[in-house]
Design a protein around this nucleic acid. Structure first.
Lengths: 210, 210
DNA sequence: TAGATTGTTAATCGATTAACAATC
DNA sequence: TAGATTGTTAATCGATTAACAATC
């Protein structure tokens, strides 16, 4: 197959694969089949083979996938060697939780600046980073080569913060506020709102279908 | 149409509609069209009409939807009048952030008990709730009629906590840990992992397709 | 009446799953 | 060789979008 357009659903599963593969190396497993992966991750084995085949032929017929090799390949696909600098706006509880989340949120992302619009927060520290005022955002983004912005402000402020990020030249935004924000094409926006997750959980608890 | 099986995607959009409708009442808007909603929420109007039509005929041809009436209907569908009691396990940063999140995480969910496996945490307070040891979980779940469990422990612990929840008779689990957990059918599990969200954001920032 | 917008059917698009030849 | 498992095509399933008659 090799490189058509890759669908969002596929890319979202790659980190899942990676996570489990990492567990496997820890327990010393050398080889894994799509069957094994599927069992563990609650996915169809054919789907897993198809996902991986978008990017190349990583397995061996009759044998399976070499765990180390597959990890390496997925890391390449997701570009996990390159470190991305991240700015976070909103130092409430959620913002604090995210910044503290071991500083490196994940493998290759590093929060290097935090901002708030509340003057009483200016100069206070969150995990070794000074809280900066919003009017320093643009300059800081450029100086530190920040490409991703995280929004953890109240819903009413989210679009405003997004606009500031866009002005500053950021290329991806992860919005935790419960509101839909807009950005020009060229700036990618993902929403990480768990309200929907909770409410739909409750819905299906009653309307059993599983 | 009215009541086939409702797909997950549909249910996940309902809270989105509700959110925006609530904003509209605040600005005093009485009536809204699927076109308006679609523009604001970045959704196709036909999709919105179809979603709503699963549950009944809420609109008026040539006019649109009455905002108040639609809010009422969606609240009924999602059963937002009934309060659900929630237990949370894991009092790290994320757990704290969630419990503090105004106590009522959303409209109708209330965290009424928090647990941790670290003895040094026992008896400390999080937002007026005493942190309890894990061996009190089962009794507390029954006593307080808790039906939903939130997991904010490290990935290695998540399945274990899920098992305890299941034993205790919980019917829905929201897992924030970066690991896939299993539960018997009858217990619904949703995953709220933002790692995937972040990594896929980064992926598409480079492989521009939008 | 003319214009707007719903509810719904039909068409399209996309994603998941099944099946199997290739081959280790 | 026999058994296992991939990569990939074809079949299926499901979700989104277009189109339009009904009607306010």
């Amino acid at each position: 197959m090799k490189q058509d357009k890759i669908s969002e659903a596929v890319v979202r599963r790659l980190p899942l694969y990676l996570r489990y593969l990492n567990e496997l190396t820890i327990s010393g497993v050398q080889t894994v089949s799509s069957q094994d992966l599927g069992d563990k991750l609650d996915l169809n084995p054919a789907q897993i083979r198809k996902d991986l085949a978008y990017f190349g032929e990583f397995g061996r017929k009759g044998v399976g996938y070499n765990v180390h090799y597959l990890i390496e390949k997925i890391r390449q696909i997701l570009k996990l060697d390159k470190i991305l600098n991240v700015a976070l706006v909103g130092t409430g509880n959620l913002g604090r939780a995210l910044s503290n989340y071991s500083m490196y949120i994940r493998d290759n992302m590093k929060i290097v600046a935090v901002f708030d619009s509340d003057p009483s927060k200016y100069g206070t520290f969150i995990n070794r980073l000074t809280v900066q005022p919003m009017n320093e955002l643009s300059e800081t983004v450029k100086r530190l080569d920040i490409t991703i912005g995280i929004i953890t402000v109240p819903a009413t402020e989210a679009q405003n913060v997004a606009d500031r990020f866009v002005e500053a030249g950021i290329r991806g935004i992860l919005n935790f506020a419960p509101s839909v924000i807009k950005a020009p094409s060229g700036v990618r926006v993902h929403h990480a709102d768990f309200t929907g997750e909770l409410l739909s959980l409750a819905y299906y608890m009653d309307h059993e279908k599983s």
